[in-house]
């Protein structure tokens, strides 16, 4: 399975960025909703929409998909 995003669906809420357990372990400040300080994280909101930075780090736990309100990020 592979992590996919559809920027047209994204509202830029950043819930996936905060919920992603891998993101939190790479850049702990995202858990507080502050946004990542590094591009090492799997995904970040850039210019108001979600963008994948390091999708190869994804462990396919499905947490982002469960929390995304608009089906903008999913595993396929």
């Amino acid at each position: 399975m592979e992590l996919k995003v559809e920027q047209d669906n994204c509202l830029g809420c950043g819930v996936c960025v905060v919920a992603c357990p891998v993101n939190v372990s790479i850049s702990p400040e995202v858990a507080g909703g502050h946004g990542s300080k590094t591009e090492e994280v799997i995904m970040m909101v850039e210019n108001g929409v979600i963008k994948l930075f390091s999708p190869e780090k994804c462990t396919k736990c499905g947490t982002c998909q469960m929390f995304c309100p608009t089906d903008a990020i999913w595993l396929e």
């Binding site: 399975m1 396919k60 736990c61 499905g62 947490t63 998909q65 469960m66 999913w74 595993l75």
Partner: peptide, 14 residues
């Protein structure tokens, strides 16, 4: 073993 986390949680057809 597949990506069982995603398969179970998102009810994927895999």
């Amino acid at each position: 073993l597949g990506d069982i986390g995603a398969i179970v949680r998102t009810d994927a057809d895999v």
